[in-house]
Design a protein around this nucleic acid. Structure first.
Lengths: 164, 164
DNA sequence: CTGCTTGCAAAGTGTTTGCAGGCCC
DNA sequence: GGGCCTGCAAACACTTTGCAAGCAG
């Protein structure tokens, strides 16, 4: 539907593990489980939910370990997270292309979240591009559009509870 | 510098208290202190810092009370808050015009925050307007540009620590 | 007086960290 | 086998809440 297909679910883990090893990082049960969880969905999962699902795949994996794994994978730019309002950060797999490395973020997108119902909507990176350019020029500020969600009210909630 | 002057510091409290009473809310020591703190600066203060300063003006004012006051004032649209990454929300006085009510938000602005040094920069509402319109059209989503800060890297940090 | 607000303490989220032991390479 | 990772528990930062007393209107 877009110019670039979303990566097929459940196919990125082997490449991710290879990349991990290539970077001198260890491949552990916990890290594999986290990657599998992230690779199995397109949802916006928070650390707690990732921990729950990871523990289902690899019993005993601890929440703290999931946080550490997400942190490590984040530093390696294999996983990205988004802060969404005041609540828990949500994580997703970066598009991993063994050839291109972590730059192949063709599915990079920003998020907006409805403060009324909590739904998170994806916004194509292209939509944010003008703003990115503007901030670059005006403030010399390099925006990372995917790192924080903007907030507002979705169509449904606007009808349900008009600008109360 | 802009088409609209920033409101002069230290002048909004009386009007705010009047508005409070007009809405049937009580004027208390804690609420007055919070309003005075917010009215005395243009900084981006979090609840903890507001509590610290409020306690200086009105000894005994408790952090929990400050949170409650900020919440109440927020519902009345006299105070706005911004979520900035994963850290504490920052609060500021909405422009209160007794004639116009809380809509007179001429100084409304969005924020961007440098993930490296933490500095928060203001972005004029005007800069976000195209994005607001775009989301309105594309997703029927009503964006509140001031409610969450976007993240990125500021000019100084980009030089100091070039892209990772 | 009435009951909204407060102070206090405690609980609730979300996330990080110190330490001893375990597993990857 | 050496040292990175993990499990656990505890600490941490931010925010909310139950309750009895206090003050605004």
């Amino acid at each position: 539907m877009s110019t670039q297909d979303a990566p097929p679910l459940g196919t990125s883990v082997p490449a991710a593990l290879t990349l991990l090893r290539k970077r001198g990082e260890r491949v552990t049960r916990a890290r594999r489980a986290v990657l599998e969880v992230l690779d199995s969905t397109t949802e916006h999962l928070n650390a707690d939910e990732i921990a729950r699902r990871a523990a289902a795949k690899a019993p005993g994996v601890h929440r703290a370990t999931v946080y550490r794994a997400l942190s490590t994978l984040g530093e390696l730019e294999m996983v990205r997270h988004t802060h969404v309002g005041g609540s828990a950060a949500v994580y997703h797999l970066a598009v991993l292309d063994p050839e291109l490395g972590a730059e192949a973020n063709a599915n990079a997108h920003a998020h907006v979240r409805c403060t009324s119902c909590g739904i998170v909507l994806d916004v194509p990176a292209e939509t944010l591009r003008p703003l990115v350019g503007r901030l670059e020029r005006d403030l010399d500020f390099h925006l990372d559009p995917a790192h924080a969600a903007l907030l507002g009210t979705c169509a449904i909630c606007r009808v349900t509870a008009p600008q109360g």
